[in-house]
């Protein structure tokens, strides 16, 4: 066994463990958060604060039988939940948590994460199609139109940030923002951009992250009041578990990207206690916001969802792109 091979195995194991642990415990955080907002206790029996709930749920799900409906396409039916989890794990390869904590920094890091994120909707399509169920099918069609619609403003906003930083290297983007808190890309005045619309850019990116991870108020794919449970209607046991974990792993990636692109990554405000915990603090604050939004906003309609993207977010992000380009040229 050579050192390279050991390094690779170590990085892979850590990435998978981080993704899985986050996915499992964010389910717990979501259930506790939902309970708090709805004034009920939530899972609090197993272990202190109900902290043993996720592993027990995992054991329960794995012990159950995986039922494949008759007439389903078996290969794709089994492949779909696996595909739900892998984009997030692949993305952890290049996400820098601090100056030193990164598995493999490549100079097209942003591109890599968006490339794998864009393949995530394939899992929903395959799940919806292979289930041979009308509700699953409709959910898959919705999921595709949603992911196509929201990828555009998301990528335009990202291009704005890439233009400001002049690089697609995630490390480089954070380094450019780490001079002071006012150099973070969310703040418009100092830094490279001078663009007063940067906070709007941040909001657009955040809304697109919500939509791309299929979170309420944009969870039209699994709208349980209309489509039973959408694309995972026919899934039981760990198949369902993998979809669930994939959703949370994708949320972590979305929050990581928001932190890196707009909130200065691991750079600390006013030089206080520099370190990886600033990254984690920003990351989990964003995830808490995700949970908070899910339980306080009602679900939109599919038309409202598509109108928001095509009529508001895309024109706004294009204006922002042009303005940023002009301001970079002027200053």
């Amino acid at each position: 066994m050579s050192l390279t091979l050991l390094n690779v195995i170590f990085a892979v194991v850590v990435a998978i463990a981080f993704a899985a642990a986050n996915a499992a415990y964010l389910v717990w955080a979501e259930r506790r958060g939902a309970a708090r907002i709805q004034r009920r206790p939530g899972p609090n029996i197993n272990g202190p604060f109900g902290l043993l709930q996720p592993p027990l749920d995992g054991i329960k799900l794995m012990a159950k039988q995986l039922i494949i409906p008759g007439g389903a396409d078996k290969v794709l039916f089994i492949a779909a939940p696996v595909l739900a989890m892998y984009p997030a794990i692949m993305s952890f390869v290049t996400i820098p948590f601090s100056d030193t904590i990164v598995a493999h920094n490549i100079n097209v890091g942003i591109l890599m994460i968006f490339a794998f994120a864009s393949t995530g909707s394939m899992s929903l399509i395959f799940a919806g199609w292979s289930s041979r169920n009308k509700y699953s099918m409709m959910s898959a069609v919705r999921a595709v139109s949603q992911s196509v619609a929201y990828e555009i403003p998301m990528l335009i906003t990202t291009i704005t940030v890439v233009m400001i930083a002049g690089s697609m290297d995630l490390m480089e983007i954070v380094h450019q923002q780490s001079r002071s808190i006012l150099h973070w890309n969310i703040f418009p005045l100092l830094g490279n951009s001078h663009n007063i619309l940067m906070p709007a850019s941040f909001l657009i990116f955040f809304i697109c992250t919500l939509a791309e991870t299929n979170r309420a108020p944009f969870d039209l794919g699994e709208a349980e009041s209309e489509l039973v449970a959408g694309f995972h209607t026919e899934y039981g046991s760990m198949g369902f578990g993998l979809f669930f974990m994939g959703e949370y792993a994708n949320i972590v990636i979305g929050a990581c990207m928001t932190t890196i692109l707009f909130l200065g990554g691991w750079s600390c405000p006013f030089g206080l206690f520099p370190g990886v915990w600033w990254f984690l603090l920003k990351l989990y604050l964003l995830i808490a916001t995700f949970i908070w939004i899910r339980w306080t906003f009602p679900r939109t309609t599919i038309y409202g969802l598509l109108n928001l993207s095509w009529k508001i977010l895309i024109p706004l992000s294009l204006v922002n792109l042009l303005l940023t380009a002009g301001l970079i040229k002027v200053f």
């Binding site: 097209v108 591109l111 890599m112 968006f114 490339a115 794998f116 994120a117 864009s118 393949t119 909707s121 394939m122 399509i125 199609w129 099918m137 898959a140 069609v141 595709v144 139109s145 992911s147 196509v148 990828e151």
Partner: peptide, 20 residues
């Protein structure tokens, strides 16, 4: 990365959309 982004993320998704 462009191959994955364009061909898997866009072309394949569009094809399956058309099929559905």
């Amino acid at each position: 990365m462009m191959q994955v982004l364009i061909y898997v993320g866009a072309v394949a998704v569009t094809i399956s959309f058309a099929i559905m």
